[in-house]
């Protein structure tokens, strides 16, 4: 996307002010409204679709497989497909790396263990059907909802099979399948999220739109889970496919204050995602009758 110098300076000046004004009037920490559904793919263990009003759309599906624990290096595998980009392009492999990195560091993989020998392996397939701004927030929100709606069949064979040659067997009844949170035996199962943050002068903005991305001085990708900002935190040029002439460095103090700022406010994001997940689950249980 190309902006004219006049547009660029208008948007930059608006964002640079002491009380910044975003082109669409959002507050600095406000996200664009989303529309989401969960568990709509019958062939996968869990799935979610998220859309933004500008046409961006992302679908994530979670599938599981029983594997021998010792033979697998990691128990979670990402695959990312972005329409309009080759699978071996830099953009797609960067996205894939960022997502793998986030999940390697922050997903309780050890809890996927099924028996002494076997464990579940999760395959997360992410299709970015269309996007205008940097798609990682959308992708992680969709995978958050997909993992929340993921169900795994109930194990009926012995848990301890270290001595016996036996493959795990599962209950035939899908009604007995467990949500990941039940399977992990935790109350608060909260997959990690990426928050994209744009920097202009002293101001920071979450979820910058495509036009905003063009004038940013720097971009941050901040991991977020369970009310705290987590690694990895990286900085990057959010405006892909264009040379961002405003791009420059930022002071470390700004990073620290940004992390502090987000920590206090972002719990409402997770709450919104959880509420939607809960509503969808309620609907599913009702729809049987």
């Amino acid at each position: 996307m190309l902006l004219s110098p006049a547009e660029r300076s208008y948007i930059y000046d608006s964002l640079c002010q002491k009380d910044p004004i975003r082109p669409d009037g959002r507050t600095p920490l406000q996200f664009r409204p989303l529309e989401a559904t969960t568990d709509f793919l019958p062939g996968s263990n869990g799935s979610a679709r998220i859309r933004i009003a500008d046409g961006s759309e992302c679908i994530v599906s979670v599938k599981s497989k029983v594997v021998l624990s010792e033979k697998e290096a990691n128990l979670i595998e990402w695959d990312v497909d972005v329409s309009g980009y080759r699978d071996d392009s830099n953009f797609v492999s960067n996205l894939k790396f960022s997502l793998t990195d986030l999940y390697m560091k922050n997903f309780p993989c050890e809890k996927l263990k099924l028996t002494a020998k076997y464990s579940y392996k999760l395959f997360l397939d992410c299709i970015i059907v269309s996007h205008s701004s940097y798609p990682l927030t959308l992708a992680t929100m969709a995978s958050y909802l997909a993992l929340k709606s993921t169900r795994l069949p109930l194990l009926v064979s012995e848990v301890d099979d270290s001595q016996v040659e036996e493959q795990p067997t599962f209950s035939d009844d899908w009604e007995k399948a467990q949500y990941l949170a039940e399977f992990f035996k935790t109350e608060s199962f909260s997959p990690p999220l990426y928050i994209t943050v744009g920097i202009v002068g002293e101001n920071v903005f979450v979820d910058p739109s495509e036009t905003e991305e063009q004038v940013l001085e720097n971009g941050l990708l901040i991991g977020y889970s369970e009310k705290k900002c987590i690694a990895p935190i990286t900085n990057l040029n959010l405006a892909t496919n264009s040379n961002n002439s405003n791009f420059k460095g930022f002071t470390p103090a700004l990073l620290i204050s940004t992390v502090d700022l987000l920590k206090g406010h972002l719990s409402s994001i997770v709450d919104a995602l959880d509420t939607l997940d809960k509503q969808d689950k309620e609907d599913r249980t009702q729809s049987i009758f």
């Binding site: 507050t27 920490l29 406000q30 409204p33 989303l34 994001i269 919104a272």
Partner: peptide, 11 residues
Amino acid sequence: MSSLLSITRPT
């Protein structure tokens, strides 16, 4: 302050 993120379900 209004909520930072609103998520709706498709209708």
